[in-house]
């Protein structure tokens, strides 16, 4: 399933510029977590990562784990260096005012309908 479709269904707001990381990439599943070591250890290639961490290190984790995107929840805004790094590392960052629970809940339903695992 394409990131773009998920962004539309969940009304996620892309924060990285349109000329930056594109939203055409495939999403393999999703991971929710705020502990970077946990995400490093357990997320999988192509996962969309739902978190409320905004620190610049989230981009490094997403890059190393080849994640498809970072979704920052609860209306939290990332710091400017996080955004700069996301553009240079080609990692889309999207925002939502919803909680991690609700975002995950809705995405689970969408991915399940497409037989994609969490």
């Amino acid at each position: 399933m394409k990131l773009k479709e998920i962004a539309e269904i969940l009304s996620l707001k892309p924060l990285t510029p349109a000329e930056g990381p594109d939203l055409e990439r495939e999403v393999s599943g999703a991971y929710v977590g705020d502990l970077l070591s946990d995400v490093m250890a357990n997320s999988e290639d192509g996962n969309i990562w739902i978190t409320l961490q905004t620190h610049v290190n989230i981009v490094a984790v997403a890059t190393l784990k080849n994640l498809s995107a970072i979704v920052i929840v609860n209306g939290r805004m990332p710091e400017s260096d996080t955004l700069d790094r996301a553009v240079s590392e080609d990692i889309p960052i999207l925002l939502t005012g919803k909680s991690a629970f609700e975002t995950a809940g809705k995405l689970y339903r969408i991915l399940n309908a497409r037989n994609l695992q969490g």
Binding site: A100, E102, A104, Y108, G118
Partner: peptide
Amino acid sequence: PYSMFTACGKLYEEGLRCC
């Protein structure tokens, strides 16, 4: 045994909502 994503997904399916 589930990940946070799957646990949230299953509970959301059951009708539970966030605070």
